[in-house]
Computed example of a mutant assay.
Amino acid sequence: MQVPESPTQEPVVDAAIAAKSSSGDLSPVQAGRSYNWCSPFVTGMAAAAGVAVTYGVIELIIAARQVLILIGYVFFIATGSEPTVSWLIRHRLPRRGSAGSDRRISSPSPWRR
């Protein structure tokens, strides 16, 4: 078995000769027209993306519905009990005690013993 003197030179030379013979007079590629961002395709893709995002947000809200209801309930209770807690704080009851006593005064728990 004979080993060529430089194993990489023969395929490279062959490839260069094949490329030279197959290519004709080619001019360099020039830039085409600029892209029209107001085309119907771009407008349609933007609208489809907006619909997809809106659908995702609605699904997220539906999935987190129970948590959002609890947050709304707590906000309502905190806002409604604030005047009573402020009055109790002005009369030298600590805020922690005021909030706890307000819950017992304004809305007694049915599970209270």
Results as ranks from 00 to 15, higher is better:
81 S>E: 05
109 S>D: 15
83 P>W: 14
27 S>V: 03
37 W>Y: 14
85 V>N: 01
103 R>Q: 15
87 W>E: 08
94 P>T: 10
105 I>S: 10
71 I>D: 01
23 S>T: 11
84 T>D: 03
96 R>N: 05
5 E>Q: 08
35 Y>R: 14
24 G>Q: 00
27 S>D: 00
71 I>W: 13
32 G>C: 01
97 G>D: 00
60 L>S: 13
4 P>A: 03
19 A>W: 14
111 W>F: 15
2 Q>T: 11
77 I>K: 10
35 Y>G: 01
81 S>C: 08
51 V>F: 14
26 L>Q: 09
32 G>D: 11
28 P>K: 02
80 G>I: 07
62 I>S: 11
36 N>M: 09
59 E>M: 14
105 I>H: 07
66 Q>V: 07
90 R>P: 00
78 A>H: 07
43 T>D: 08
68 L>Q: 09
83 P>C: 05
30 Q>F: 03
86 S>W: 06
30 Q>P: 01
70 L>A: 13
101 S>Y: 03
59 E>L: 15
59 E>P: 00
109 S>P: 02
44 G>D: 06
85 V>D: 02
46 A>C: 05
85 V>I: 12
41 F>A: 07
33 R>P: 15
96 R>F: 00
81 S>A: 05
81 S>D: 03
21 S>P: 01
31 A>L: 00
11 P>Y: 08
59 E>N: 08
81 S>Y: 07
31 A>Q: 13
59 E>I: 12
21 S>V: 04
69 I>S: 02
28 P>R: 03
5 E>M: 10
97 G>Y: 01
68 L>C: 12
17 I>E: 08
8 T>N: 09
55 Y>L: 14
99 A>K: 11
95 R>T: 05
32 G>W: 14
96 R>V: 02
15 A>Q: 13
51 V>H: 14
102 D>L: 02
22 S>R: 13
88 L>F: 11
35 Y>K: 12
63 A>R: 15
93 L>Q: 10
48 A>Q: 07
98 S>W: 00
80 G>W: 08
75 F>S: 02
7 P>I: 15
78 A>E: 06
94 P>S: 10
